[in-house]
Design a protein around this nucleic acid. Structure first.
Lengths: 180, 180
DNA sequence: CGCAGACGTTCCAATTGTGACAGGTCGAAA
DNA sequence: TTTCGACCTGTCACAATTGGAACGTCTGCG
């Protein structure tokens, strides 16, 4: 049982960090910013988690300190072992079904409130989907897309978000009519 | 600060339990079965969680023991306070954006593996979506839908699942072409 | 009878996520 | 010069989630 245990269960944060560092080295602070900017809607992370993970990853030899900056800044770089772990995670599939959704859970129980309230709730789901749709369109327009990997795969994720939002909005419109 | 604190943060399991009991009284074991059958893909729960929540909910006065059965079986029923809490949760909206998705997270980092592998991964996402699509269609056919609340709102959730699966499959088909 | 298997509850240990807090360094503007 | 905001690292306590083990009770069956 080596340090690189095969905890095949979740812990995707670890891989999120590895993935960001695989793209480009950076400090914990950098990663925090990158998480906020690019992945807030896919995999939010707090500072506590990030620094904790960085410490564990370094101990496990998956990343190492590339350089130290002004204020104790530690710039991390992914190691060969880290890259291997990342690829292993990416290839050994089984993303495990759709994740839990508090929004949908609520729909199950809408029988406990009045039809009018239920309709209101579903409508608000549609509205928030529409708002997300707009935000994503703006985001798309504000980024200058290149041909690098990050652009290609980032575009894939963005497109997914757009399609998801459209689906949710259309579903909500349909659902409002059903609750009558 | 009453027992019914306003921990507005998550903890949807509590409300999932309340929702199930609002629909129909039952024991922990019953709920476990119902969770497996109806909500496995929306909000999975384990026995540890269920029994724990039941204890806390009883202590908080949101449910009470309706009857005791053969093997120490305790059949719970939701109380007025519990119903109120459930409705409060349903109405005080803000479901909080789309949840984290390990599947999408991976897409971000596909630049770390070969295009062929990336294409393979995206294709597998499409395939699993297609499989889910089929399962849901079978599920739909196997249920005899009535006009009760459970049927109406259950149908809404099912439809959401179907649309989600279709979206994901179509996205995957599109994405495979992009990775070239 | 004896026992497999469903029923039913309870406890525990480990991991992960959240939010607040504590502290230190640097650059630039007032 | 002082002060402020951005930078940068870390720790703590708590809640939520997961997974498994332990343990007793009833029912049906050979």
């Amino acid at each position: 049982m080596s340090i690189v245990e095969c905890h095949d269960g979740r812990m995707s944060l670890r891989h999120a960090v590895l993935g960001m560092l695989a793209d480009e080295p950076g400090s914990g602070y950098d990663l925090l910013k990158r998480f906020e900017r690019a992945m807030a809607s896919v995999w939010p992370a707090t500072q506590s988690q990030l620094y904790g993970e960085l410490g564990k990853l370094e101990a496990a030899g998956m990343i190492h300190v590339l350089a130290e900056g002004p204020r104790g800044r530690k710039e991390y770089e992914i190691t060969e072992a880290g890259l291997e772990e990342l690829r292993h995670w990416l290839v050994d599939v089984d993303p495990g079904g759709p994740p839990r959704s508090a929004g949908l859970l609520r729909v199950y129980f809408l029988g406990s409130v009045s039809p009018a309230q239920a309709r209101g709730y579903v409508a608000s789901m549609g509205e928030s989907a529409r708002a997300r749709e707009e935000r994503l369109h703006e985001l798309e327009a504000s980024i200058d897309w290149g041909d690098d990997n990050q652009s290609v795969y980032g575009r894939l994720v963005l497109e997914w978000g757009k399609r998801f939002s459209v689906m949710q909005r259309e579903w909500a419109e349909w659902a409002v009519k059903q609750v009558e």
